[in-house]
Amino acid sequence: MFLSTQKPKLSNFWINFSPLLQINKHFIYICLKTQQFKFMKKSFVKGLAILGLATIALVSCEDSSLVLDEDLNEQVDEDIVKIEEQLAEISYTVPTPNELFDIVKALGGELNVGLINSLDNKDNYVDLKSKALNFGVYSADLGYMSCFENGIEFLKYTKAIENLGNELGISEVFDQDLMDRIANNEDDFDSLFTISNETYFDSYLYLEENKKGQELSLIIIGGYIESLYIVTNLIEEYKEGNEMLERIGAQKLVLENIIDFCSQYADETAVSEALSSIMELKSVFDDNMTFVEPDAKAAAQNDGDVRVVASSGSYEMNEKTFNAVKAQITELRNNITQK
């Protein structure tokens, strides 16, 4: 069970990968807490030197995050108490923007090219943070356009992403083979949609494998912001029963996983700034959504050979939440793209 006790804030540096380092974290905490730090200093420093070297090396092997839950715990809504076992490390994953667009299209959403980020802005992104965030933004735009069968700008946007990718050190993803596939499928929107999805995933894997957690986090955040910006702005005004509103509400869950994932890189200033922005968005969801009690009669059932998981209590959208989320996401998105 999560505890609300405020431990001394320790860097992620110490909290990775092995039980040994977990012990190390608690060792430091106990030392500080009991005021015995001075007496233990001599032996502590020796141990620290060795463990520090080990940690520096091991940190790069870290895959996921016991620390994420601890960081999250400090930010979780006060009305919510999380009960979770922490026996295993958890890797948090995030659906791509393409999945959301696919759903939105099926629900009657439309293409509005006025919502995508103009390529005129691409030369304004000069620092790593804005390059990575807008790599995510343009990737989401690419997914949106291909999903809604607009191939006119596809190659231009791919080129823009490629240029940003080169500057972020992921040029390997954008090889000649990819460009040839795009050229050969310029009228096949299903293929373009698949290509945009694969490119996003390959960029993700490349960054993860090459320990570029900062860039990866920013790209994921940029993609999320752009996709939610597009979908919320496809709805002019709140209307009870609009199914797209429920999908926007589900983006709260995606946001939580993004925060869990990116928190492991929160030592990087750019990531912590971006996290801080999306934490504000999470607060907008948390503070305004309506809690719906679980249906006591709900039970799992089978639909053929597919198990249908019954829902429990949930949070639902309402007019106040929609308007607040739309305003917040529009501000966030414009802060990223308008440099």
Binding site: Y92, P95, E99, N257
Partner: peptide, 13 residues
Amino acid sequence: KIYEIGFIAYKDF
């Protein structure tokens, strides 16, 4: 060991 991932399942799939 145990390997654990947390993911999102949309109701539409």
